[in-house]
Amino acid sequence: MAFKGAIEIDTAHCKGCGVCVTNCPTGSIRLSGMVNSKGYNYAEMTGDACIGCSACALVCPDSVITVYRVKI
């Protein structure tokens, strides 16, 4: 059984700590080159390898990540 996932990030409230990036098993999240209004390089989804495991959202201190997952 395979899963495909997607994440939505509240970029305005992301503080760019990068804890989600090191916890992602598929390398589907990175820190953007752009900054938000507070000056943080916010996290963003990259590629299409996300499996919707929620690891990034679980470790996010500011609860800015929402995770979706479908069976394929």
Binding site: G5, P61, V67, Y68
Partner: peptide, 28 residues
């Protein structure tokens, strides 16, 4: 990606009891 981001596929969201106030804690 837009087809995956639907309410029926939601598996994790910010807990309802966490308020919308921006936390004053340092990043991380």
């Amino acid at each position: 990606i837009a087809d995956i981001k639907r309410p029926e596929n939601l598996v994790y969201r910010k807990p309802a009891l966490i308020t919308d106030n921006v936390m004053h804690y340092c990043p991380g």
